[in-house]
């Protein structure tokens, strides 16, 4: 089997007791400081998004549930999100966001494939899968941008919208905006890492751990989307 140094690390770890692992002079959870930093940064960033989403919960509960025409009731997602770029005025609720969600999930899958190829030191394989991941990210951000301009065209602003409570628009733009910014940063980082892979930096380094670390960030972005999608499109 094509096991890398990381697998060997894990096998050795299984033989070591917890006491020995934590006795100093080694990595107790068999993870480099860089990987730990990425994990704990992601937890911290999760709390930032949680702050926004919990504020959303408080504001949402403070509004009456949807009733057609009521200026202050919470909009019905099926009414708000019913357009796609290619179907003109057709009424297709939630179809476009389904496409966006699948795009992000698939780009997460391609990211995992990149990480897996990295453990086998397969530079070409890593590059192949990273390209698809970046493309997925770009399609997502592009779609989000289209969604924004469509909603703005329909009259949604941070201070009001024709579908119901003004807070819906404000929260939607801020939270999807923050998420979209994170995706964009991820696309940039992935591109830098793709370039580094191409010029052989990680081959020289002897490991592709950087792919794993940026992979964690990319999955985090996907994970946040699961909850943003739930909050605005489903609930």
């Amino acid at each position: 089997m094509a096991d890398s140094a990381m697998t060997a690390h894990h096998d050795h770890a299984l033989e070591q007791s917890t006491e020995e692992l934590w006795s100093g002079g080694q990595e107790p959870v068999k993870a480099s400081y860089g990987k730990l930093m990425m994990w704990y940064f992601l937890i911290s960033d999760t709390f930032t998004f949680a702050g926004f989403l919990i504020a959303y919960a408080a504001i949402r509960f403070a509004h009456p549930t949807h009733s057609a025409g009521a200026w202050n009731s919470w909009p019905d997602p099926n009414e708000v999100f019913s357009a796609t770029p290619v179907t003109g005025h057709a009424n297709l609720p939630l179809i476009f966001v389904t496409f966006m969600t699948f795009t992000l999930i698939v780009s997460s899958v391609t990211m995992v494939r990149a990480v897996q190829e990295g453990t086998r030191m397969n530079r070409k394989g890593v590059m192949f899968w990273m390209v698809w991941t970046i493309l997925g990210g770009l399609v997502f951000v592009g779609s989000q941008a289209w969604e924004w301009q469509h909603l703005i065209h329909e009259g949604m602003t941070p201070t009001g919208n024709p579908f119901g409570a003004a807070a819906f628009g404000a929260l939607f733009f801020i939270i999807t905006g923050f998420h979209g910014a994170h995706v964009s940063v991820g696309v940039v980082i992935n591109s830098i890492v793709l370039f580094q892979t191409w010029i052989g930096t990680y081959d020289r380094r002897g490991h592709y751990e950087m792919i794993e670390k940026v992979g964690l960030y990319w999955h985090f972005v996907d994970l946040v989307w699961v909850y943003v999608f739930m909050a605005f499109y489903l609930l």
Binding site: E19, S23, G25, E27, P28, V29, S32, Y33, L36
Partner: peptide, 14 residues
């Protein structure tokens, strides 16, 4: 946090 986890010298258990 990561320094406390990873960089203790040998014998410095938690």
């Amino acid at each position: 946090v990561t320094t406390v986890i990873n960089l203790r010298t040998k014998g410095m258990s938690i």
